[in-house]
């Protein structure tokens, strides 16, 4: 077994693109669920809105990259308004139904044949991210691999990571500041009991809409960073599994805590990377035995690691339901 390789892959994942993108999307979901109690099961829809806002603006309209970013934000805001305006007056479950349906509708809409001119349909979009890498601000050589101790990244990824982590940390601090203000207090009150908040003069509907928009825009930014790194937009990558991964990350970290999306994402993805590289590096004898007994082969290792993470999440739900950062005492206050 090549432990050096396993460690390098694991450490590089720790600050890698997946951790950064999913942490950012989970920060958005944390605003929705952790602080406001909104059941958003379509966070991937906001990511798609951001990604296509960027991609279509540059690819079809051939406008400037920064205008594309602005459109990505605007599309996410519009999506939040479309989802929130009719449903936020209703009970929480309705938002869950509408968001999961909407995120699938978006995916099916953008891969629709008749949308090919705008969204590239199932072939997707490319060649929109070049300005991001060609900017004079980029200090890295796109084609070169950079090594720092156990961390190893391509120059291209390093530039996305630099920008992405700055955005992520600023967003977390932004959310932290908001949540320690009276605005955040009103959101938490709505999470605890909407009617009590309304009786005390809080416009719960408006607060929930603001929360949905804020978390949606953060999700949209995560979507943009993801497609910028990939260099292409594929409709089918915006599937509901992404949403559930974001949920798993948030629950892992502990909802309603400042840094839990970031730590949750780090744990989730490094665990995945560690399991995958370890399983692929097993000594010949061991891997043959595993193949003969539980049919573990090179082809299904990527499925097996998700199964193992799933088992881990079940154990977490049983033994530490509050997540890494949550407080058990606080959690227990729920069941009265």
């Amino acid at each position: 077994m090549d432990w050096g390789f396993i460690l390098e892959r694991t450490f590089s994942t720790l600050f890698g693109v997946e951790v950064m993108v999913f942490a950012l999307a989970a920060v958005g979901l944390n605003v929705h669920f952790g602080y406001t109690g909104l059941l958003n099961f379509g966070q991937v829809g906001f990511m798609a809105a951001g990604a296509y806002g960027l991609g279509v603006t540059i690819h079809y309209f051939e406008w400037n990259f920064m205008i594309g970013v602005v459109f990505g934000v605007v599309y996410s805001l519009i999506l939040a308004a479309i989802l929130g305006l009719p449903t936020l007056r209703l009970r929480g479950d309705y938002l869950a139904i509408v968001t999961i349906a909407a995120s699938e509708s978006i995916r099916l809409f953008v891969r629709w044949r008749k949308m090919k001119e705008f969204t590239g349909a199932s072939e997707g979009l490319g060649e929109f991210a070049d300005p991001f890498y060609e900017t004079a601000l980029n200090p890295f050589d796109v084609g070169v691999r950079y090594d720092f101790g156990p961390f190893s990244y391509l120059g291209r990824d390093l530039w996305v990571l630099t920008v992405g982590w700055i955005i992520l940390i600023l967003t977390v601090l932004f959310v932290k500041r908001l949540m320690s203000s009276p605005w955040g207090r009103a959101l938490k009150a709505i999470r605890e009991d909407e009617d009590a908040a309304r009786a005390l003069g809080k416009n719960a509907y408006w607060f929930k809409l603001q929360s949905l928009m804020l978390g949606g825009v953060i999700g949209g930014m995560a979507g943009m960073l993801q497609v910028i790194q990939k260099g292409s937009i594929q409709a089918d990558t915006f599937n509901p599994v992404i949403t559930f991964t974001i949920w798993a990350i948030l629950i892992l970290g502990g909802p309603g805590r400042t840094w839990s999306p970031v730590i949750g994402s780090m744990i989730y993805w490094t665990l995945i990377a560690f399991l995958e590289t370890t399983l692929r590096q097993l000594p010949e004898g061991t891997s043959n035995t595993l193949e003969d007994t539980i049919k573990l082969s090179d082809f299904n290792i990527s499925q097996v690691r998700f199964i193992m993470v799933g088992v881990g999440l079940i154990l977490l739900a049983r033994y530490r339901p509050q997540g890494i950062f949550g407080s058990r005492e606080e959690m227990a206050l729920d069941d009265r």
Partner: peptide, 12 residues
């Protein structure tokens, strides 16, 4: 509002 402190309940 269970998962808020008493003083936060008041300030709300």
């Amino acid at each position: 509002l269970s998962r808020m402190t008493v003083i936060d309940n008041m300030k709300l």
